[in-house]
Design a protein around this nucleic acid. Structure first.
Length: 807
DNA sequence: TTTAGTACACTTTTT
DNA sequence: GTGTACTAAA
């Protein structure tokens, strides 16, 4: 423990009572949690009396491994439980759900977002709400919000400010939704938490069990907990309902117990799904005698990066003052590199190029490209693929979201819980068995009339012969397939055997094999992967139940591979991670901050926290990029620089854009008009204008004129380039970014004479071979070189990073 | 009933 | 640009 600072050590050694740790980004908070757990165990606490709740399965896994390593030499009787809120709840419910007043059995299934949406769609169809005014997604998010506030369908309808037609409709959908999900013996993500809290409230035995078992409870990323998660935490830690708590002697309660929560207000980025950082603000009030420890020493990033982060977050009003301090060891560090590209392709090319340079210099470095929306990933993927760089992408569709995987899992789910209507409707005709819409409609009507599940409806239909012969044969075939799987499950066959049987006996694999298309090949490959995953899980001692739960609860962020050299992901997914090199891309108004957040100051502050999270992921190098034009929904539109660019001090940034850029323009006003426009760009417009909307009216117009200015310059440059003897690689064209926004080639001035490379110099490059320097911008190491390589076209380099030799 | 083709709505962020 | 949902034809 000697390598901990004073505050960290205090946090580790405080093992009794409520403890609140406010930990800034990169302040070694994960280490504190790990050391604290180890410390608890070393002072004689039984490992299985410790519970640590993390944000992702991945974080849980990592923590487990590190603790195991640290305790490796000691004999471990039991391990501490390290889990996400959702996994914890599934565990609790699978054990005790039948003890509470509800129809749920321990075989309940978990409905993921996809299942939920399909359920809402079915309900809307049944209720005749197929008009365009209400989307299933919207209905679902409203329902989820109401559920998390503890509102029943009725109280939701009553509590709405005004009874609109929409609220009334949503209330009806909500009512049906709750009914049908319960009837299917299924729970959605919200239910997992809600039902667990209900169970602990309702059944004193169960509450006492977990209260006694988990004497030491830790919650990471506490700023992102919602009211239900908080209540769950409280129930386990205190072992009493709110009313009972008033009668408890707090001092008595905390003997040999602790509740330690760790969080950072500035990194609260999940308000959109109900997390509430007021919980952390009220923690001291809720728990008498809370000890507060602040960790502000940052061990991750250079002074420059931290300054930028501090300056950004300072603008928020909803926060507690806090400043991150850099360690001397890392020092000031390099300037933040700023790059403006002509369009999205140019941005991606720049990022690809820089990643290549960084990897060439240090093959073991790790780079991350962080974007606001997952839709931005495509261009970067293409750029990296063009350069032959391997990358790992987090988010988008994960393995478990692929249709074939979901189908096979649905067979397993249905085998375990025949009332799971969503699983059934998913696979009843996959592969095609001749059960079409007409048959399903009949079944659905009968199901609604009888108030039973689809599976039961099939049985009834066959018994009563209410369906034509051909469809009946098909249904009977399906029923037999399912029964065979159920028999295997009931016979406790090995997990991997069951998965293999599902792939083969359902005809799923053979149907794909017959297709003989490339796509089918890919799907078959994925099925093989699923089988290997099952074998792996079996070796780990998992049951079929565990395997299915795992598939439902893995998050996108769990796809993150620590050792990947290049990772693409959303900023949300990057929380808790760190990288030597970070690219924060797409700094454009309406993208980041996102257009959906522009309306309210509260949302805007969350966007700013998001920006703060992105910046503080960087250890050594931070690149910030934006494009002047961006293609959205198939249309290319002018993009305005993000207001966040104005909030980072210009002195911290170095402009590596190829032509004139927004930053250069804003930094060097030369005329009165420019000065005014630049001031506006920096957000120095009169407060009255700024208050109502940060970029409107005059400000917007001036940005427009900047764009016009660049457009003209680019056209001029293009005209000149057309006359250049060495044509630009046609395939890449202007989209190569390297040539986008280029100012007219400049004759090397006398000040360039001391540079390492001069115009006209012959150079050699590891990949492109012999080339000639066409252009030198800037001086010394920072100079940007344009080099022409026969057969490869023109390439741009920064002298310092370029793998160029004099030839 | 299935399939192929076309129209269209869509994207914040995620356990 | 993409995935889904609806329509028309086999």
């Amino acid at each position: 423990m000697e390598n901990l600072n004073h505050e960290q050590r205090e946090a580790v050694e405080t093992v009794e009572g409520p403890l609140l740790i406010l930990a800034g980004a990169g302040s070694g908070k994960t280490r504190v949690i790990i050391y604290r757990i180890v410390h608890l165990i070393e002072t004689g606490v039984r490992p299985d009396r410790i519970l640590a709740v993390t944000f992702t399965n991945k974080a849980a896994q990592e923590m487990k491994e590190r603790i195991h390593k640290m305790l490796g030499h000691q004999r471990q009787i039991a391990a501490p439980l390290i889990s996400t809120f959702h996994s914890l709840c599934v565990r609790i419910l699978r054990r005790d759900v039948e003890k509470m007043q509800s129809a749920y059995t321990r075989d309940f299934t978990i409905y993921d977002t996809d299942d939920q949406t399909r359920l809402v769609r079915t309900i809307m169809k049944d209720l005749g709400f197929d008009d365009k005014s209400l989307s299933a997604r919207l209905a679902l998010s409203v329902i989820s919000g109401a559920k998390n506030r503890g509102q029943s369908p009725t109280s939701y309808a009553n509590q709405a400010d005004y009874a609109s037609e929409k609220t009334e409709k949503i209330a009806q959908i909500y009512r049906q939704y709750e009914q049908r999900i319960a009837q299917a013996n299924a729970m959605d993500f919200d239910d997992l938490l809600i039902k667990t809290v209900e169970l602990l409230r309702q059944v004193p035995d169960v509450r006492a069990h977990y209260h006694e078992r988990f004497a030491h409870l830790m919650v990471d990323e506490f700023q992102d907990t919602n009211a239900i998660q908080y209540e769950l935490t409280r129930l386990i830690a205190v072992g009493a309902t709110k009313i009972e708590q008033a009668k408890i002697n707090e001092e008595e309660l905390w003997k040999g117990r602790s509740l330690c929560v760790v969080g950072d207000l500035d990194q609260s980025i999940y308000a959109f799904r109900g997390s509430d950082f007021n919980i952390i603000l009220n923690f001291e009030k809720d728990f008498q005698g809370t000890k507060l420890i602040k960790l502000e020493q940052n061990y991750r990033s250079t002074q420059t990066i931290l300054e930028a982060a501090n300056k950004i977050i300072e603008r928020n009003t909803q926060r507690l003052p806090k400043t991150l301090y850099a360690t001397d060891a890392l020092g000031q560090g390099e300037a933040i590199r700023y790059y403006q590209s002509y369009d999205g392709d140019g941005e991606a090319s720049f990022v690809g190029e820089k990643i290549q340079e960084h990897l060439r210099r240090d093959p073991h470095t790790r780079c991350a490209v962080l974007y606001r929306t997952n839709a931005q990933s495509r261009l970067f993927e293409e750029s990296l693929r063009r350069r032959g760089l391997a990358y790992n992408i987090v988010g988008g569709f994960s393995f478990y979201e692929r249709a074939e995987i979901k189908d096979l899992i649905a067979y397993l789910k249905l085998a375990m819980n025949p009332h799971d209507d969503m699983a059934l409707s998913r696979i009843i005709n996959a592969p095609p068995r001749g059960i079409g819409k007409a048959t399903l409609d009949i079944l659905h009507t009968q199901q609604q009339d009888l108030g039973v599940s689809m599976w039961e409806a099939i049985g009834v239909a066959i018994a009563n012969k209410t369906i034509n012969t051909r469809a009946m044969l098909a249904l009977d075939g399906f029923r037999r397939v399912m029964s065979a799987i159920r028999e295997r499950v009931n016979a406790d066959e090995a997990l991997s055997e069951i998965v293999k049987a599902v792939a083969a006996d359902t005809g799923y694999v053979s149907a794909l094999q017959e297709e003989k298309t490339e796509e089918a090949e890919g799907r078959l490959y994925n099925i093989e992967e699923l089988v290997s995953a099952a074998v792996e899980a079996e070796n780990q001692g998992e049951t079929l139940r565990d395997f299915i739960d795992h598939a439902a609860l893995v998050a996108d962020t769990d796809q993150y591979k620590e050792d990947a050299r290049v990772t693409l992901m959303s900023i949300h997914a990057a929380k808790g991670l760190e990288f030597p090199v970070v690219f924060m891309v797409g700094l454009e108004e309406n993208l980041f901050p996102h257009s959906r957040a522009a309306s309210s100051e509260k949302d805007l502050e969350e966007e700013r926290r998001l920006c703060y999270v992105a910046i503080t992921r960087a250890q050594k190098y931070l690149y910030i990029t934006h494009a002047m034009r961006r293609r959205t929904w198939g249309e290319e539109l002018a993009a305005e620089p993000s207001r966040f660019l104005n909030e980072i001090p210009m002195t911290l940034m170095q402009d590596v854009s190829l032509g004139p850029s927004w930053l250069k323009f804003a930094a060097r006003p030369e005329t009165k008009h420019n000065r005014e426009a630049a001031a506006a760009l920096r957000g120095e417009a009169p407060p009255a204008v700024k208050k109502t909307s940060n970029f409107s009216g005059k400000t917007y117009n001036s940005v427009d004129s900047v764009n016009d200015f660049f457009k003209r310059r680019i056209q001029e440059a293009e005209a000149r380039e057309a006359g250049t003897p060495k044509p630009v690689d046609a395939a890449k064209g202007r989209a190569g970014g390297a040539s986008a926004g280029s100012p007219p080639p400049r004759v090397a001035s006398a000040s360039d004479s001391g540079a390492k490379f001069k115009v006209g110099a012959r150079v050699r490059h590891a990949k492109y071979g012999q080339g000639m320097v066409l252009k030198v911008e800037g001086v010394g190491d920072e100079a940007k070189l344009t080099v022409s390589f026969p057969g490869y076209g023109q390439k741009k380099f920064v002298a310092k990073f370029a793998a160029l030799e004099k030839a």
